[in-house]
Design a binder for these strands. Structure first.
Length: 410
RNA sequence: GCCGGGGUAGGGUAGCGGUUAUCCUGUAGCCCUGUGGAGGCUACGAUCUGGGUUCGAUUCUCAGUCCCGGCCCCA
């Protein structure tokens, strides 16, 4: 009976796994250099953690289950909530700000499509304990750097929820949410229709529509003309100054709404070409979740990178490690094991475990694209040496094992 | 949850009512038991699942399932 893999999951074959680890390691290098520390949270959590954060509606998109003690559990659909839970449970007394990152798989029960799987990997970063613009700027700069480091041309959009919320402040919260949703979708005609429908004042209507299409150098100036000198615009302007200092290219976009209510100020998204309908590779912002999970009034800012989408468009290839195959005959098999064991202290070595004849071993070395063959035959054993064969040129010489290793690692 | 396009050896494919189910590639082995890549030969290996129509279904039909793309959603 042949068993297929569950829908929306993937097997990563050796070549692809090597690529993924290579890209992962580059991104780890970046966050390490920025002074962030890795954390690991459970693969499954209590269901409440996510319904508390995102509402009962998310259950439809979760891999939830009842455990044998009748507790409602779910595979994690994201990592921001677990990290905040972890903070409340065990990190509240640590010096702030905390600079954390994670790289883990998440699970969502959704219809798979390009760049969307039921098991997917998120590389995320969170700063806990600073509400300053400096933290926001660092987070955006770090996200940009990670994207850049893996060779992707990203399109960064930065906005600030406080600004559009200021415009909408006189409307009911339900209406605000609906408007934010339409704004996020860039559904301008839908937005106009809805503003009409709720009889929003001419001023609100005009301000919203003008605000969301502002862009370019003088966007902040124009925003001031529309809504006046509010504190949020000062913060936003400062953020842009810091981003410029980091050398980050950005597009101002007051139309980013990022769904849910816990985002408090800065929001950003990074898009990339070549991904079909799911073109967002990174999203983040500043938020307030810790109180929701029973902690204090601690602000955070962070982002999540869609690792699978990055892999989809990332072109970088790992350098292939130089490798060798040790080739033996029947009577020198144990000598070959000793040679391979010694060599493995420095380089990857393949050794025949199929009792193949000499020729077949060499053929295997060729098929697997080995750089060197190290021949350990009767003649070599008697001479206390090995024969090193360069598989690319075909040249070979008999020398001591130490010399052979030195040549290979040159 | 909805819409469209697809499922034939491990990968890529041909056949479209009756075939020994085609070819390429792959893997294993032999020609050739101390020298690889070529060639020849041999072996391995497939009609997504279940109903229906039919004397007979890989082919037609329905349902399911999985894959691909899109909608909804996107924390």
């Amino acid at each position: 009976m042949k068993i297929s893999k569950p829908r929306g999951t993937r097997d990563f074959l050796p070549e692809e796994t090597t690529r993924r680890r290579h890209v992962e390691n580059i991104m780890r290098q970046v966050v390490n250099n920025w002074g962030y520390h890795e954390i690991i949270t459970p693969t499954f959590e209590k269901l409440d953690l996510f319904t508390l954060k995102s509402g009962e509606g998310v259950v439809g998109e979760l891999y939830n289950f009842m455990d044998k003690g009748n507790r409602e559990m779910t595979l994690r659909p994201e990592l921001t909530a677990p990290v905040m839970r972890m903070y409340v449970n065990g990190l509240q007394a640590n010096p702030r700000p905390l600079k954390l990152f994670y790289f883990e798989n998440c699970f969502r029960y959704e219809r798979p499509q390009k760049g969307r799987y039921r098991e997917f990997w998120q590389f995320g970063v969170e700063v806990i304990g600073s509400k300053l613009t400096d933290a926001d700027a660092e987070i955006i700069a770090l996200a940009s750097e990670m994207i850049r480091a893996v060779g992707i041309q990203g399109d960064l959009h930065v906005g600030h929820l406080g600004i559009i919320r200021h415009v909408l402040r006189d409307l009911g919260s339900e209406e605000q949410t609906k408007i934010m949703r339409l704004v996020d979708k860039k559904d301008d005609s839908g937005l106009e229709d809805y503003l009409e429908e709720i009889h929003a004042s001419a001023e609100i209507r005009r301000n919203v529509l003008e605000l969301i299409c502002l862009s370019g150098e003088d966007a902040v100036l124009k925003a001031r003309q529309i809504i006046g000198d509010i504190e949020e615009l000062d913060h936003f302007e400062e953020l842009l100054t810091l981003l410029a200092a980091y050398g980050v290219n950005y597009n101002i976009d007051f139309g980013i709404a990022r769904g849910l209510d816990y985002y408090t100020g800065m929001v950003f998204e990074i898009y990339a070409e070549g991904l079909g309908a799911q073109n967002q590779v990174c999203g983040g912002g500043s938020y307030q979740l810790i109180q929701l999970f029973g902690g204090g009034d601690v602000p955070s800012t962070g982002f999540g990178l869609g690792f699978d989408r990055i892999m989809e468009i990332c072109k970088i290839e790992p350098d292939r490690a130089v490798n060798a195959v040790v080739i033996a005959t029947d009577e020198t098999r144990t000598d070959a094991i000793r040679v391979a064991t010694a060599m493995r202290e420095t380089i990857p070595v393949y050794l025949d475990i199929m009792k193949r004849n000499f020729k077949a071993q060499l053929s295997y070395a060729n098929n697997m694209n080995a750089d060197f063959a190290v021949i350990v035959g009767k003649r070599e054993v008697e001479a206390g040496q090995v024969t090193l064969k360069d598989m690319h040129s075909g040249e070979q010489t008999q020398l001591t094992l130490e010399e052979a290793i030195r040549q290979i690692t040159l």
